[in-house]
Design a binder for these strands. Structure first.
Length: 586
RNA sequence: GCGGGUGUAGUUCAAUGGUAGAACGGCAGUUUUCCAAACUGCAUACGAGGGUUCGAUUCCCUCCACCCGCUCCA
């Protein structure tokens, strides 16, 4: 991380465009003092010296201060004299006072900070002066006089900010992880880092789960948990925060070479039709199909809790954006109210989830650094491999070998030789014949807090109504999908001063309570109670009225069921209420 | 991290160097009351710490929080 000292803009140290041109550098700047100030000071100084008590002192002070009485004058110079005379005799104090006054008037108005700026060849030096003066002004020097200008040519330097041309600060690591100490004493041994993502535990436990849960590839392990990142700017409510909840799935699949060995070829999924159901997973799917499948499956999840497809966006990471080990990554975005528009005015959205195809990188890393095998044994593969024509098995062997070698080379430990790497890759490829391989992984990883924010933003709806008296009122309704509404139903007795209504309403409440979150309310008018539930997003309200008690005999034991989004009402038998609601909220 | 702004009740907004008000909301009550009805009563606030002052919510300083912009988004 490097920074332009003038504009404070930051760039990544490894991403600076090389530039050429003329460099103007300065060792610092000092206040230029106006002629008027200078003559006033000199008059004062000469006057003070002339009033010293004896001629001897006058002569001494006159000689020593000679430099100040003639030639160039600035705060730094005066300051130097002031300190030179720090321990002088008491008789010289009036002189010191004059110096002190001048020094103080211009104090802090000098800078010894180095500054350099790169200009394209041909630009006049004045623009460099201007930028440098601007810089020293920002450092408190009001009328900067530049010191020790040096001019030189430079080629392909990455030390200057691409926009401002200003020399960047030293590269500083940007701390992304939270560091802490475990135990009561802070020492080197007890340093710990809070995890920046949750997935690593899954890989560490991969073998245990495989063995104990009696799973076969393909299968997945999901996890939800806290992660911590030292974000530069936590912003936008809970969209980006330093502590957040992450939910991740590591879905383990067979490498394409294994699929091809068993099934002869790798099936492609083609483009999925958004309207049709996600197809049933097939045994001959390769990583591309599985990746596509999970993207579609995740979108369906979002749709299932109320985020319709048109509120979402997608971003397919370009090869440059991808991490070196990733094969593909699709981000699912939500169009938040704060999301920025592009040039055409379209809202792209902000990331809710990334679905990455990560190959066998993670398990391979764990295997190499823990020394424990992360391979699986596949009976079907071993049987199929034996029946392959030699030509085919050679091709697959070679492809697998190349992938492994590529990975091992990229992630080589410092002491590993090319020979060792080839040997390891050969060993890995030979494993195929024995039915042994490291699974590949598809990783959907989502931010839970962001999802909650998206659900709230999506549900928020305001309506301004004007009543008969001309009084306008704005009401807020959170139109949550019933599945994610915090309360599923509000239960009200029409009147609270009628014990029969209250008793019946409480019975309905107790009937539903073991099955779902319900909100019992008897305070205020019925309209107000509906409004309160609208505001917290409760999708249904159930009112117990006189008909429930049998005022009209045919309506005995029925209730008013009222919908949040349109206010419509219908009557429903109490005996059917629970199943009716469960069907809506599950 | 930089620049700017704002901090008074749950919310929106007043006033004040000496007792901090309102509206809406909340709570309790009256009322056969189905979309924030009405009436009665009650409770709730000066972001934190220093300083100036007889006295500070008000003036000054520091900190903190939030907002906007820059930045960041590995």
């Amino acid at each position: 991380m490097r920074e332009c000292p003038l504009t404070k803009k930051r760039v990544r140290a490894d991403q600076v465009e090389p530039q050429s041109g003329t460099v103007f550098s300065y060792s610092g700047a000092t206040s230029t003092v106006s002629d008027k100030d200078v003559s006033a000071f000199r008059f004062d100084l000469a006057d003070t010296i002339s009033k010293l008590p004896n001629d001897d002192l006058k002569a001494r002070a006159g000689i020593e201060a000679g430099d100040l009485l003639a030639g160039e004058l600035n705060a730094a110079k005066v300051s130097a004299f002031f300190f030179q005379w720090r321990d002088s005799s008491e008789e010289l104090h009036p002189v010191r006072r004059v110096l002190d006054k001048f020094k103080r008037t211009h104090e802090g108005k000098e800078s010894s900070e180095r500054f350099a700026v790169l200009l394209p060849t041909g630009k006049p030096p004045e623009s460099a002066h201007k930028i440098a003066q601007e810089f020293y002004q920002s450092r408190g020097v009001k009328t900067p006089g530049l010191l020790n200008e040096k001019i030189g040519k430079i080629e392909n330097s990455t030390d200057f900010h691409p926009e401002s041309g200003v020399e960047l600060t030293e590269a500083r690591p940007f701390n992304l992880m939270f560091k802490t100490y475990v135990g009561p004493v802070e020492s080197e041994d007890s340093i710990a880092y809070l995890r920046p993502e949750t997935a690593q535990a899954i890989f560490a436990q991969f073998k245990n789960v495989l063995d104990t849960a009696r799973q076969k590839v393909p299968f997945g392990i999901g996890q939800i948990g806290k992660a911590f990142r030292n974000e530069v700017t936590p912003r936008n409510f809970i969209f980006r925060s330093r502590e957040f909840e992450q939910m991740e799935l590591e879905f383990f699949i067979k490498p394409d070479e294994v699929i091809e060995a068993i099934h002869g070829s790798v099936a492609t999924l083609g483009t999925l039709d958004p309207k049709s159901k996600t197809p049933e997973p097939q045994p001959n799917w390769g990583w591309e199909s599985w990746h596509q499948y999970w993207v579609e499956e995740r979108v369906r999840f979002y749709e299932g809790i109320g985020l319709s497809r048109d509120t979402l966006g997608f971003h397919h990471q370009t090869p440059e954006e991808l991490a070196h080990y990733a094969r593909a990554c699709t981000d699912i975005l939500f169009k938040f109210p704060f999301s920025k528009k592009d040039e055409q005015g379209n809202v792209k959205g902000d990331e809710l989830e990334g679905i990455a195809a990560r190959g066998d990188f993670d398990l391979s890393q764990h295997q190499r650094f823990s020394g424990k095998p992360m391979t699986v044994f596949d009976e079907e593969l071993r049987a199929a491999w034996g029946k392959l024509p030699k030509e085919k098995s050679d091709t697959l062997w070679k492809r697998y070998y190349d992938h492994r070698k590529n990975y091992l080379t990229k992630c080589a430990k410092p002491d590993e030789t090319a020979e060792q790497i080839s040997q390891q890759a050969t060993e890995d490829a030979n494993g195929l014949a024995k039915g042994v391989y490291i699974p590949h992984v598809i990783e959907p990883s989502a931010g839970v807090d962001r999802l909650i924010l998206a659900l709230i933003a999506n549900a928020f709806s305001e309506e301004t109504k004007t009543d008969d008296k001309g009084k306008s009122e704005t009401t807020v309704t959170l139109k949550f999908h019933p599945r994610v509404a915090p309360f599923k139903a509000g239960i009200f007795p029409l009147l609270k001063n009628k014990p029969e209504l209250v008793k019946k309403a409480q019975a309905v409440r107790d009937l539903l309570r073991p099955w779902m979150n319900v909100y019992y309310d008897e305070a205020g008018s019925i309209g107000k109670r509906y409004a309160r539930q609208d505001e917290i997003g409760t999708p249904f309200c159930v009112t117990i009225d006189f008909d429930t008690l049998g005022e009209k005999p045919e309506l005995l034991d029925t209730v008013t069921l009222r919908y949040r989004d349109d206010g419509k009402q219908e009557r429903l038998k109490i005996s059917e209420l629970r199943d009716w609601l469960l069907a809506k909220v599950r």
